[in-house]
Nucleic acid binder design. Structure first.
Ligand SMILES: NC(=O)c1ccc[n+]([C@@H]2O[C@H](COP(=O)([O-])OP(=O)(O)OC[C@H]3O[C@@H](n4cnc5c(N)ncnc54)[C@H](O)[C@@H]3O)[C@@H](O)[C@H]2O)c1
Ligand SMILES: NC(=O)c1ccc[n+]([C@@H]2O[C@H](COP(=O)([O-])OP(=O)(O)OC[C@H]3O[C@@H](n4cnc5c(N)ncnc54)[C@H](O)[C@@H]3O)[C@@H](O)[C@H]2O)c1
Lengths: 272, 272
DNA sequence: CGCGATTTGTGCACCTGTTCACAAGCGCTT
DNA sequence: AAGCGCTTGTGAACAGGTGCACAAATCGCG
């Protein structure tokens, strides 16, 4: 249970990017072939590294970084080994160059412009989110279909009408968009975004978007997350109910922790 | 690219719950041993099924449901086969009983009570989110540390002080909490929640929570999602630069579409 | 009542990702 | 300069998940 589940990649197949140029340009490290699972963890490593740097460290062991990032150290070492060698045996990793390398790999050298479409309940919160800016992104445009909202200033940036998407996406060189419209509008809006040149979409609407192959879509669905938790709750309570019958002693605790030794579905019960 | 990435399970190991009782009691289906990857997809199937039911279908083929859920049909069939047999060869799946079974498995029989802690920018939006209620959950309590916020009514429910957590969690039998406090407060709040009896947490704060083994934690981090997209953007542009040199023609488009077999397909519609 | 069309359920081969465990490498100390 | 303790980097075994391809089952129709 406790290896933290950060939502990612149920099982995306294949490595990312088949055709590596393999030409080393300038002093920039090459663009390696990263396993998708590794890519999904790099942002977490990056966050942990920034935190460590801020708290005065300039070196960290795989064990320490793994702890901070919520993974085990073997996995972390293997992940980092894909980026090239930034560690020193007997010592650990130099934080600064490692941060630089991860940021480079993630394409965060340059602050990326992001468009946010649908400035409602959720969109409003996202538009005001500071972590956006502090982690490599710049909200370059806000869009909504509701004319009464157009013109409104949020965090210093004006809401524009979705009709302006093509123009603004081009002028601001936006390639990533965040979609926070109602589900019913999401597909149409996504189509407009893609037509305007957007190639990556973070979708908060609970629908599966149907888009061209080359467009990257990630989906965040709060209800899905809760339902997964609910499943485990259901399981836990089933397990708990049985154990209550079988034993009142704590001797079994070890087994419970040991994982997997779980039986019987007690139907009715739900909460602990 | 186009198999939609719903955020989940980088690589959680092990099946969920090993020893299945195999005793079938009453008419209720058994509690099967589900692969974690399957669990993570069930909510998406459920959403798609509800949508289908609402649009008048009462049967759907694996192909149709797979399309609506953004997976391929073989995977879908295998997933559903874990739940028992709810399909008829030559016909498809009966939507109604299948919905019932998935809801049962996910523990959504009974509407689960959820607590939300941190009623700020994001928390406010979440508290007002309708999809919460419509997908099996009930916001049973809102908490904040800020006394000026305590007492405020959001969506008909009053914000309470975090000091009330133990009392309310017990009285409302809350086992799931959503954490939307600043990162700095998250660990402390999580500890309080767990002490009060919460056993599942959905964490929006960008920190790794350190909690007892038996507590389930899922994390949603907007910046992480964007950074993953950024990686792919970086990739695409690197590749694009290379391809631009190699070809300027669109002959490649065919290849792009050919991938995955699914030729663009009808937009909104799902089954024939 | 049997036949063909259709679609499920699954065995199997493949592949990605995880974990173990240890040799290689580094720096410090003596 | 050699020894020692520590930590990385990685080969190899393992686990889990995916997708193909097909046999089994069901339906509708003639
Ligand atoms: N609020 C949440 O906490 C939350 C959580 C998870 C998911 N979601 C999802 O995010 C989406 C937005 O939720 P919300 O609560 O902010 O809804 P909302 O109704 O408050 O906001 C939707 C906004 O989108 C705008 N809009 C509608 N059609 C549009 C179009 N065609 N083009 C551009 N903008 C358009 C509306 O004017 C409105 O401002 C929904 O799909 C919802 O399911 C919301
Ligand atoms: N706003 C977003 O779109 C967004 C997106 C992703 C992640 N997040 C994360 O979600 C969290 C909340 O973001 P926000 O923008 O709503 O911040 P916010 O500052 O607007 O809200 C935080 C709320 O938590 C309350 N709080 C502070 N300490 C508390 C404590 N000890 N116990 C209970 N409540 C406490 C504050 O009073 C405030 O109401 C942050 O960790 C942020 O990084 C926010």
């Amino acid at each position: 249970m406790s290896q933290q589940r950060t939502g990612h990649e149920a099982g995306i197949t294949g490595r990312v990017g088949a055709v590596t140029p393999s030409a080393v340009l300038g002093s920039q490290p090459d663009f390696p072939d990263l396993p998708e699972a590794t890519v999904a963890r790099l942002p977490e490593y990056l966050r942990a590294l920034h935190h460590l740097a801020e708290t005065g460290h300039d070196t960290v062991s795989s064990e320490g970084l793994a702890l901070a990032a919520g993974v085990n150290s073997a996995k972390l070492r293997k992940d980092l080994s894909h980026l090239g060698s930034y560690g020193t045996r007997g010592v650990g990793y130099d934080i600064e160059p490692l941060v630089g390398q991860i940021e480079y790999i993630l394409g965060l050298n340059k602050r990326r412009a992001v468009a946010l479409v649908g400035v409602g309940n959720l969109g409003h919160a996202l538009a005001g989110y500071a972590g956006f800016a502090s982690r490599g992104f710049r909200i370059a445009a806000l869009f909504d279909a509701d004319l009464t909202r157009v013109g409104e200033l949020i965090n210093g940036i004006a809401v524009r009408h979705i009709g302006d998407i093509p123009e603004v996406v081009k002028s601001e060189a936006i390639s990533i968009a965040v979609l926070a419209t109602p589900a019913g509008a999401a597909q149409a809006v996504a189509d407009q975004l893609v037509a305007a040149g957007v190639t990556s979409i973070l979708n908060f609407a609970p629908v599966v978007l149907n888009l061209p192959e080359q467009v990257d879509v990630r989906k965040v669905d709060l209800a899905v997350e809760l339902q997964i938790l609910s499943f485990h709750e259901h399981r836990k309570s089933a397990r708990g109910a049985e154990q209550a019958k079988a034993l009142a002693r704590g001797a079994e605790l070890a087994k419970t922790v040991a994982r997997n030794g779980s039986p019987v579905a007690a139907r009715g019960e739900v909460a602990a």
